[in-house]
Design a protein around this nucleic acid. Structure first.
Ligand code: FES
Ligand code: FES
Lengths: 147, 147
DNA sequence: TTCATATAGGACTAATTTAGTCCTTGACTA
DNA sequence: TAGTCAAGGACTAAATTAGTCCTATATGAA
């Protein structure tokens, strides 16, 4: 389990959409606001659309918006859509990877780690992120004001 | 944080040494027993030697053995030596990676995940693994006997 | 109705990282 | 002193990641 760039982009992107609900926002705007290569982001948004996390609208004034409330979308969901399942070690996914798998004492450790990670990611929604972001941004503002 | 092949090899290797304490075991034997490419394993053992986890002896009847008791060696230690620190997302290591870092609401999630993983890995020693392995291997034997 | 503005989708490429090999040198010991 | 083993550096192959580019299709407005 290592966050790929693609997933990182996807999370920022969904965060942006969550911060601008109920309007269609196009790829260019998100890519500029969140500093993501435009064409790459377009690909990511295709995945999110297929997965039903966002809905798209073509033509002028088109773009993307969330299909659900931010509180109903977890980090884990986005992670899973763009990156697939959590895979701490290859043998956890591919059971032909290691012949020791039937008695390997290390294996259960990875399983446990995965369960922990999954729990944490499921328990963080984009509503949580939005409110936290507001607080943090405010903190940065105050710091700047002081100097 | 994704277990590399190299780390996986290293863990199996140390497990083998832990199961055969107090004798020097050479690269060839470990590589055969644990199914690891010989030359690659040699490299890994170099790292472990430098890190002081194993000690080496050259010449005939040479090889490697642990410098400490299995109970004193954690999975985390091996992980760290061969793979470096836990890095769930790049921004956690490289603070120039993302300009959002000062107020990013997602960032703390990765930090928490890392802390959890680290705890779990530190709390598993090779003594734990050895005893668990014995139980698991026994289970496999019993299953075979039944058929 | 047609032009400007969007996304959809596939094929491709570049860059980076992972997973090794190979070869020469140096230590140990029977 | 020959045979056996690790140390170390340089190299290569394979796989994955991180994108680009081009064409097609949908939409709304002039
Ligand atoms: S088989 Fe999965 S860690 Fe050993
Ligand atoms: S800066 Fe680390 S996740 Fe946003």
């Amino acid at each position: 389990m290592k966050i790929k760039r693609e997933t990182d982009h996807a999370l920022k992107c969904v965060l942006h959409l969550a911060q601008h609900q109920d309007e269609y926002i196009n790829v260019l705007e998100i890519s500029q606001q969140k500093n993501i290569p435009r064409t790459f982001l377009a690909k990511i948004l295709q995945k999110l659309t297929k997965a039903g996390i966002v809905e798209s609208h073509q033509g002028s004034h088109g773009g993307f918006k969330l299909t659900r409330q931010p509180a109903e979308i977890s980090i884990y969901e986005i992670y899973k859509v763009v990156q697939g399942g959590i895979e701490v070690n290859k043998c956890v996914i591919d059971n032909k990877f290691c012949d020791r798998i039937h008695y390997c004492s290390i294996h259960p450790v990875w399983i446990e780690v995965q369960v922990d990670i999954k729990k944490k990611l499921i328990n963080t929604s984009f509503a949580d992120l939005i409110s936290k972001e507001a607080v943090l941004a405010d903190g940065v503002q105050r710091k700047k004001a002081k100097t």
